[in-house]
Every structure is written in structure tokens, then in C-alpha cells.
Amino acid sequence: MKRKLSLLLCAALVLASLAGCKPSASENDSSSSASGDISSGGSSSGDSSQEIPGPSDIPEINFMVLSGPTGVGAAYLVDSYAAGSAPTDAPFTLNTTVVADNNQVTDALVNGSADVAAIATNVAANLYTKSDGAIQVLAVNTLGVLYILEKGDSVHSMADLRGKTIYATGQGANPEYVLDHLLTANGVDPSTLDIQWMTAQEVSAKMVSSEQAICMLPVPAATALMVQDTGVRQALSLSDEWEKLDQGVLPMGCVVARTEFIQENPILIDALLDLYGDSITFMTEEGNAADGAALVAKYGIAPNEQVAQAAIPQCNLTFLTGQEMRAALEGYYAVLFRTDPASIGGGMPYDAFYYGGE
């Protein structure tokens, strides 16, 4: 789903959604006036025409993204619709927080301090089950971003990993389940590997200090490591290995929102999806590589512009909504359920999980 919002439509969306939207104040209270008097609907006192809402009238969305590939596609959106830079006729402003851990995102969604968030797909399914449907998934924003890297030249297939020691990040999340599934599908018992789970920073340190080593990392951490140590090579793309199994795409990142927020602000959600899709388009267009990388570095989504520019083409950014989103996620969740039902909360998500995917 990909639509463009005109400036006039954006203004109309604001007027239509203000009555139902109750924006949260940011930590510095800079948007407290967003909850001011809206009973007049922005009408001018001199004639029947309506004024375009000013910045103080625009509803605010508390938005949270993960650093790394899941947050990369939102960089242009975050920059363009921050309170200080959004156009006066914007349908919303974003109060954005960038965090490094999925648990921080789920906690914020549960306690209501985040309205919309970019998060790992298996974490979204888990949260939906554990919170009794407190969130819905709006879109898939990232496909496969995992790579096997090596200092050496011994790994050219999944089977070559048998018996190896692998430094890896992502235990209990998509990376672990994807790796287990791909190993098993290629006739390798995961228990025959010595997988040492650690943070991305610890993995990188291990690789740099070793003469021969193997790791699994997502971009941009994988990109940063290869920039730091030219002796590290990309051995396998786990997206390519997944596609060899002919079981659909590998959706690893998604956009979710609190169900209550969606119900109270359906027009605002549709506006957000339109503009998020535009952000993905901007970030993936070749002519915007330098500008996009600068934004990713500016918001701490990647460590610096050099890494960001090299990593963005490998981030597999996409924007799937509606039935296309649902088909991609259901295929992936079916694989995870067969691998480990607990990975998605013990069962397949209900129809209500998929916004616009009925």
C-alpha cells in the first residue's frame, strides 16, 4: 500500500482527527499545547473558511524505533515530522525515541508511553499474545538483514557451520530462530555448534581480536565490523539461504501500534502509514544515499554516516501493508511455530492482529 498525501489532505486529516486524538506530552513538555482548546475546529472568526492548523494544534504521536535496520527506514519520517521541523499543515508530529532493545519497546507499548513503534516481527507476535491483543501490526518495514561473517575461508554453505563456534547476537529473537531453522533445513543439528550469544559490540570485539572466527550479525553492525576489520568477509547472506528453501520472504521488522490508539485515531494511523511509506521510498532511492545516511547517523540508528551509507542497501527495506503484509507474516510465523511455538507466543496470531489484513 503506497499513497501520497497532498498538503490539503494533510490539513483535512488534522481537523478530522483532533477530536479523537489525545496526544501525550513529550518529556520537555514542548507539545503541551497540542491538548488545548479544539472546540472551534480551527475556524476563523471573520468568515466561513478554516485556518490551516499551526504547530501547536497538530496532534503528537509518541514513536519509538530500534537502532539498527528496523529503525533505518523511518529516519526521513522522524526528521521531517519532528515538532521543530514539521510543516504547519502536517497531520501529526512525532515525539521519537530511539532505543537498542526490543524489551524497551514492548514496555513502552504496554505502559502507553509509546503509541507506535518499529519492532522485531517475532516480538510483535509475542506481545500481541501476552498483552491480550493490546497491539496490532500495521506494516512490515524490513526483510532479512542477517549475515554470517568470517575471518578465514571455511564457510560457503550452511552445512559448513557444523561443529563450528559462532559468536552471535539475538538470542530469544528472530536471529536465533532463523539460524536454527536454516541449520535444521540444511541437515545440521544446531546443538552441534558452539553458539556464544552476546551483544553486537561484544561479537565485533571477538572478531577483531581473533585470527580466525565466525559470527552472525545483522546490518548495520555487520557493515561496521567489515569497515573496522578488512579481514572479515561476508560468508553467507541468511536472506539468500532462506530464499533457497522457497518459503516466502523473511520479514524481520515491522511497525505496530497500540490497539486503543488505532481505534481512537484511525485517520491519523492511515496518514502515518502514507508518510512512513514515503520515508521508505526516500531511504531506498539511490540519489538519496548520502542524505539518508546522514539522517540515520543523526538519530543514532547507525554509528556514523560511513557505516550507514554502506549498510542501507543491505537493510532490505520494504513497506508491506494489508493482505500483502499478512501473507508475509503468516508464512514466517508458520515457520517459527514449527521451529519453536514459544517464539511467537505459543500460537499463531488471530485475525485481529493484522491491521487492514482482514
Rank of each mutant, 00 (worst) to 15 (best):
F319R: 10
R326C: 12
T321Y: 05
K298L: 01
E324T: 14
A328H: 13
L336W: 11
A311M: 12
V296S: 05
Y354C: 05
I312A: 02
K298V: 00
L295A: 06
L320Y: 15
A311Y: 10
A311C: 05
T318L: 13
A302I: 04
Y299H: 12
R338K: 14
A342K: 09
T318Y: 09
E330K: 10
A308I: 00
V335I: 14
T339A: 14
L317R: 08
G300D: 02
A311Q: 07
G331C: 11
A310G: 03
M325A: 11
D340L: 04
P341Q: 09
G331N: 14
E330R: 10
E324D: 15
A308S: 10
T318W: 08
L329G: 11
I312Q: 04
V296I: 13
Y333N: 11
A308Q: 05
A294V: 00
F337C: 01
V296F: 01
K298M: 00
A327Y: 12
G300N: 01
I312D: 00
A297Q: 02
M325W: 11
L336C: 10
L295S: 07
L336E: 12
L317N: 15
L329P: 12
A328F: 13
Y355M: 00
V335H: 02
G292V: 12
L317Y: 12
S343K: 03
Y299M: 01
D291I: 04
D291L: 09
G331H: 07
N304H: 05
A310P: 01
I312L: 10
T318Q: 11
I301R: 05
A352F: 01
L329M: 15
T339K: 06
Y350C: 03
R326D: 08
V335Q: 10
N316V: 08
L317A: 15
E305P: 02
L317K: 12
F337K: 06
P303E: 12
D340W: 00
L329K: 11
L320D: 09
G345D: 03
A302G: 06
A342Q: 11
L295E: 03
N304Q: 06
V335A: 07
F319I: 15
Y354S: 03
Y332V: 04
N316P: 05
Y354E: 02
L295T: 08
G322A: 10
L336D: 05
A342T: 05
G322C: 12
I344N: 04
T318V: 15
T321N: 09
F337D: 04
Y299P: 02
Y350Q: 13
D340I: 00
Y333H: 13
P341K: 08
L295P: 05
P349L: 08
I301H: 07
Q309R: 14
Q306N: 09
A311K: 10
Y332M: 08
T339F: 01
L317M: 15
P349R: 12
G345S: 02
A328G: 05
A302R: 03
A302F: 02
Y332E: 03
C315T: 13
P349T: 03
D340K: 07
K298N: 00
A342L: 11
E305Y: 04
N316L: 09
E305I: 07
A342E: 13
A352T: 14
A310Y: 09
R338D: 14
G331P: 10
A302D: 06
T339I: 08
A352V: 07
F319A: 10
V296L: 01
Y350V: 06
N316Y: 09
A327H: 14
M348R: 05
A334D: 08
